[in-house]
Amino acid sequence: MSAQDNARPDSEIHETDAVIVGAGPVGLFAIHQLGMLKLRAHVIDSLEEIGGQCTALYPEKPIFDIPAYPRIDAADLIERLETQAEPFSPRFHLNQQVTDVVRQDDGGFLVETAAGTRIRCKAVVIAAGGGAFGPNRPPLDGLADYEGRSVFYMVKRRQDFRNKRIVIAGGGDSAVDWAMSLPEVAEKVYVVHRRDKFRAAPESVERMRAWAETDKLELVVPYQLAGLDGHDGRLSAVRVKDLDGNERVLEADVLLPFFGLAAKLGPIAEWGFPIEKQVIPVDPATCETPIPGIFAVGDVATYPGKLKLILQGFSDAAQAAHAIYPIVHPGEALHFEYSTTKGVPEL
Rank of each mutant, 00 (worst) to 15 (best):
P139W: 10
E213W: 03
R165C: 14
K241I: 14
T340H: 11
H335A: 12
L94D: 06
D316C: 00
P284N: 03
P222H: 06
L265I: 09
P304A: 04
P67C: 06
D65F: 04
G131D: 04
V220W: 07
R120Q: 15
E187W: 06
V344E: 10
V249W: 00
P290D: 04
L110G: 06
A333H: 12
G230E: 10
D316M: 00
P135M: 05
R194K: 10
A296T: 10
I294W: 00
L256G: 01
E86K: 01
E213R: 14
P67D: 06
P345R: 08
D65G: 03
Q104C: 12
F92I: 08
D5K: 09
I31F: 00
D316A: 01
A75Y: 07
A23N: 01
Y153T: 09
V249D: 02
E332D: 13
D253E: 09
L307I: 10
V98G: 00
A269L: 08
E337F: 09
L225W: 07
F64V: 09
V300E: 00
P59Y: 02
G129P: 01
F161S: 08
A114W: 04
E270S: 15
G131R: 00
D244I: 12
G142T: 12
E187I: 05
N6D: 11
E270N: 14
F109A: 05
L47Q: 11
K122C: 05
F258M: 06
R8M: 13
A320S: 02
D229E: 15
I268V: 10
L110E: 07
H329D: 01
A169F: 09
D232V: 11
P62S: 02
